[in-house]
Design a protein around this nucleic acid. Structure first.
Length: 449
RNA sequence: GCCGCUAUCGUCUAGGGGACUAGGACGCCGGAUUCUCAGUCCGGAAACCGGGGUUCGAAUCCCCGUAGCGGUACCA
């Protein structure tokens, strides 16, 4: 099996494109086949090196490797020209000077259901059209949709090369897929209507057609086509939002495809083993970040501690020192994304910034008494790991005759500035005795004012 | 307009004529775990687009609507 992922470099790789890449990759790896990366850059305007690099970047981040390429479609123009010449010579294609307006006029005369048919011109600088039969239909044997028939009569003799001789997408794709020995084309549904044209080109050239599978499109939460308005719509945005590549692969795999036993969390190895193109659904799916978050959280919690710490360090752009390791230990159970990590551990690296609302809520009249008691217990505490801290603090509520929250929340606010943090014992232990006492003192001073 | 595709809880889906009082997951709501938040555990609400057929029987098959989407470029 030889499959290909063939994006056009028009900017960042979108989630829909990422899923197409993933499905091709899964199909290839499942089958022991090859994945070819081809860049559809025949539109010179939009195809910049930066845009190409963005796609490669996204692929690498997703950890989807390819076996051949990236191959520039534009650089295959010699092959395209040769194929074009053959069609011109055999009469399967012809030069035509007709403009869009001419085509429109022709249709007005012949009926909207009839495709345009032109007449051959001697002008070598006219666009080239492919002759489409008037009778019969072209059938796409799609692995997901089943057979889909298109009446030939409804297709125009479509343009395959511009007046300047450069070829157009539907022609280039057909030639490339055939010449590169692609056995399976797996791409978005938006290409289903293009497929009969490519089939017509293939037939005119005498090439065998690959198998086709058209994936349902991905939509945004409003049911419309996915775009920037929908938040994290590109792979780099997903990365910046703190998602893990493995979690993204898992989630994307589930968008349009499901294991027969409804399994949700699947390792990449499991996805490779179970994925089958013919099991992909037919309806468009909506990208739901909530579920991605949940899956991501599961992956974050299940990561080995070392790997987790390394990933956090990388995301934060910080050195992985002892302090960061300690921070990771107390936060791993809590964060759903990498982005959520920093706010929870920040207090270990910087002085607390007091959230005034939190302060007012917790620092009530008896706060000085409670903080003094906590301070005393902690300063006299034997050792300072989480167990020791718990042993020192846990008798306090009963001794002071108040609820546990009454004692712990002021401490939390004093050391973190916020009412939200990792567990209080772990947080205090990670901060260390000196700093904890200093922060409690600072809070006490602030209260005295 | 023309040519296609699609249609099960809010979302992702299971289902492929009787096993369906339509299952699972996310989300949501409620409860528990009372150091916050998160997590975890338990429970709950929540769907077969509409109308015709076919059949003893339809979420499952067919037709017609409707809606959404795609193509209809000398874009990809």
């Amino acid at each position: 099996m030889r499959v290909r992922f063939a994006p056009s470099p028009t900017g960042a790789l979108h989630i829909g494109g990422a899923r197409t890449a993933l499905y091709n990759w899964l199909a290839a790896r499942h089958d022991g086949g090859e994945l070819i990366l081809r860049i559809e850059d025949t539109d010179r305007e939009r195809s910049t090196p930066e845009n190409v690099e963005q796609i490669l970047d996204a692929m690498r981040w997703l950890e989807l490797d390819w076996d051949e390429g990236p191959i520039s479609q534009a650089e295959r123009s010699d092959s395209h020209q040769a194929a074009l010449a053959r069609l011109l010579e055999s009469g399967a294609a012809y030069h035509d000077t007709a403009t869009a307006k001419d085509v429109e006029a022709w249709k007005a005369e012949h009926g909207a259901g009839s495709g345009y048919r032109g007449t051959a011109s001697e002008d070598p600088r006219a666009a080239v059209r492919l002759r489409v039969p008037d009778e019969g239909e072209t059938v796409v044997e799609d692995r997901i949709h089943g057979p889909v028939g298109f009446p030939n009569r409804s297709h125009d003799d479509f343009v395959i090369a511009r007046g300047d001789g450069t070829v157009l997408y539907n022609f280039a794709v057909a030639v490339d897929d055939a010449e590169m020995g692609i056995t399976d084309v797996v791409r978005g549904d938006d290409h289903l209507s293009n497929t009969p044209k490519q089939l017509l080109v293939l037939e005119a050239l005498g090439h065998e057609a690959p198998r086709y599978a058209h994936l349902p499109l991905l939509h945004g939460p409003d049911g419309r086509k996915l775009s920037k308005r929908h938040g994290a719509a590109s792979v780099q945005e997903l990365r910046d939002a703190g998602y893990l590549p493995a979690a993204v692969r898992n989630y994307l795999a589930l968008l349009g495809w499901g294991a027969d036993d409804d399994a949700t969390l699947m390792s990449t190895e499991e996805l490779v083993r179970r994925f089958r193109v013919e099991d992909v659904g037919r309806a468009a799916a909506i990208f739901d970040e909530k579920k991605l978050r949940w899956i991501n959280g599961r992956y974050m919690r299940e990561m080995p501690a070392d790997e987790y710490a390394a990933a956090v360090a990388r995301h934060l752009g910080r050195d992985l020192d002892q302090r960061l390791r300690a921070a990771c230990e107390i936060v791993q159970e809590k964060a759903q994304t990498m982005e959520e990590v920093w706010p929870l551990i920040r207090f270990l690296f910087e002085s607390p910034v007091f959230d005034e609302k939190a302060w007012r809520k917790t620092m009530k009249d008896d706060a000085p008494r409670l903080l003094e008691a906590a301070r005393g217990a902690l300063s006299g505490c034997d050792g300072f790991d989480a167990e020791a801290v718990e042993a020192a603090l846990s008798p306090l509520p009963e001794r002071l005759g108040v609820g546990a929250g009454k004692v712990y929340q002021p401490i939390r606010v004093a050391i973190t500035g916020s009412t939200v943090s990792p567990g209080i014992f772990e947080s205090v232990a990670a901060l260390g005795r000196d700093e904890t006492l200093a922060r409690i003192d600072a809070a006490l001073a602030r209260l005295a004012v």
